[in-house]
Design a protein around this nucleic acid. Structure first.
Lengths: 213, 213, 213, 213
DNA sequence: CATGAATGAGTTTTCATTCAT
DNA sequence: GATGAATGAAAACTCATTCAT
């Protein structure tokens, strides 16, 4: 049962998370103070702590939100689609957007974990969700394998590879200048790599699409 | 002209950088204090500032050192080699190791840049060096293209793609558990992606190597 | 006249005070938040402020309650008793229990007074009640003096001395480990001191009771 | 070996402790901020943390200092004195002064321990020192017992009784108004209690000294 | 009356950097 | 040059109290 109280509470928590995500993205998790978030959400500093036990928990919450949304989108827009190739394109675009919007938060989480300063429980929750995300991806790839579109390897590994390639491109964008990065071109490259690699094999292959940009 | 003075100075700077890199890798740049570095290098805290203007500069220096070494290694071990395929393998292993050892430092640098808290000059120096690194990689790929091994696309772009794929795998390692990551297996996957992608093309391709692990 | 309203109000105030005292005793006044008290009394946080103007006032109220009860007990169980020696024993036991249960609250009150952060009015109320408590004690001692049991000194001073000795032992208990302190043994020592002191006088005195524990 | 460095360091630590004690005594441990202490010792706030790991540690240090000094004083001024009665008077005066000056700090320490918020290690150190203090007191009382001045009971227990009585009087002073408390009169009462108690025994005793004040 | 959401003043602690010796 | 003592800005977090519903 969800009372009005709980609904309102959830709504406000969402408002705070939204403000936090916006601010984190405009600079970085570590550069934003709890007070900044409070102001951004039009609350007092203390109020934030009624919804989140710590600044770290805000970070984890925002990341979870992102993963959840991505999983939902994959389920709704990719799985069960008749056209597997098109579903795959959608999947890549969704993952790309996800990493664009949450990748940096991830890195913050990661660093804190490497420090040992991150509450392990928080990280575990995230890890579980990420696993689920990869599994959803693997589900789609499995269908692709059956349809003869993908190489017949373990689909979970394939999913990880796909994710890693995307992450690598996101990282390059961050190194350059985040906002202007051209998603479409990135995705083009990603598709190229994933579909054919970049090496020729005994002259069999002609790669007509990969023209100079 | 380099006097004995200057040589000694350079040597001590190197000692400090070495200690710093070791400490950074054991946890993270932000978790290590200048005092930790000083003790690690067996100097007093104040002494560090005789060699580096700021903690940030130590970070940048360590990263530069890594890039320089990588560039030297590429030049010595890859360029000018008769066997291009083998040179490429070496290149990938070198880049992989570089990102393994310096990737996290990069992320720290990156975040500070996104904050706006990083001295832009420092970042520019790094950016230049990175560009040079990519150019060296491109040089090798160019040879590969001429030899018909690589797809005949702009070699610089090809180099970026190669780097991105490697970075993506490094990131996955960090998310899991840094120390145990299996470099050899990662490289196997990377080679697989780069050489063939993971999608089949109208039955033309048989992918015999990509067995279950 | 006391309406039902007022009675109910008084009753709820009592409930809150009871919960507060229980919580304070389990750790300390300063470690317990108003919210803890509210939950302990099964009320909302805001409700507490309908019965008490401040957290401090709860403290004062609890202490007053304790003193009132002690005074009532002294009047009922000690004064007017035919056997003065037995009445005295009862008195000491009552005072001992009072300080056991309220001593720490006292110290909190005390500290705030020393800070200057305690509302002086609250402290005055307490001081008055304490004075009354000492006067009741003095009344009993007065009877004892007339009966030749106590040294014929100012009875009020005698009462203070008696109280101080008890307080000193309570303090020792707190320093050790509060819960296990042996009240009976403490009272034995207290009686010993009060009745004979611990010094011999020209061999007049033989202290048969004071055996090794 | 104590280098000049260490000596200077010790000296500055002492300065800080002195300032802290002064401030604590003028109001209370909890009302004084670390910044107050820093200003009081004419240092910057951060400097304090070069000498003490936490505010709590300052408190413990100040208390230890007090106990150490008391022990030294007892050893120098009481033990080995030919006149035991006079040595006892000195002892009582020393203990009285100690509790006057450090009693409130004790209570702060005590409360934190009851909370569970005090580092147990710190408390243990203090407990050890206190035990040593009581043992020194017991040593003197032992001599008194042998000389037939004290009741022949376990000297350690006797020492605790003596301390408790003093503490009880100190507490009364604190409840009243700290600065004006009349030490001489307090000690008079304490001596009275300890030497004879306040009860008569079958008419044997005439208490000529205990006149109206 | 009862409630719990909102508030922000206040405190401890960390650490990069400076500077006198 | 080398050192470590001094510094203070900055930030997370707590909690008594208020107030709209």
């Amino acid at each position: 049962m969800t009372t009005r109280r709980e609904l309102e509470r959830e709504f406000r928590k969402e408002l705070i998370a939204r403000a936090a995500h916006r601010l984190f993205s405009s600079s970085s998790y570590e550069a934003i103070t709890v007070e900044d978030i409070a102001r951004g959400a039009e609350f007092g500093k203390g109020t934030i702590y009624q919804y989140f036990a710590s600044k770290e928990e805000i970070l984890a919450y925002v990341v979870c939100r992102g993963i959840n949304r991505l999983c939902r989108d994959i389920e709704e827009q990719c799985l069960g689609q008749p056209d597997i190739r098109s579903a795959l394109n959608t999947l890549m675009a969704l993952q790309y957007r996800f990493h664009r919007e949450h990748g940096h938060l991830f890195l913050s989480l990661l660093r804190r974990k490497l420090d040992g300063s991150l509450d392990p429980e928080l990280f575990n929750v995230i890890r579980q969700k990420l696993k689920k995300k990869t599994e959803l991806t693997a589900t789609l790839l499995e269908q692709g394998i059956r349809a003869g579109i993908f190489v017949p390897v373990d689909s979970y590994k394939l999913a990880r590879i796909l994710e890693n390639v995307i992450k690598g491109f996101i990282l390059e964008d961050m190194e350059k200048r985040f906002p202007e990065a051209d998603a479409e071109q990135d995705l083009e490259f990603i598709r190229l790599v994933l579909s054919e690699g970049i090496m020729l094999h005994g002259g069999r292959k002609t790669n007509g699409e990969a023209k100079e940009q």
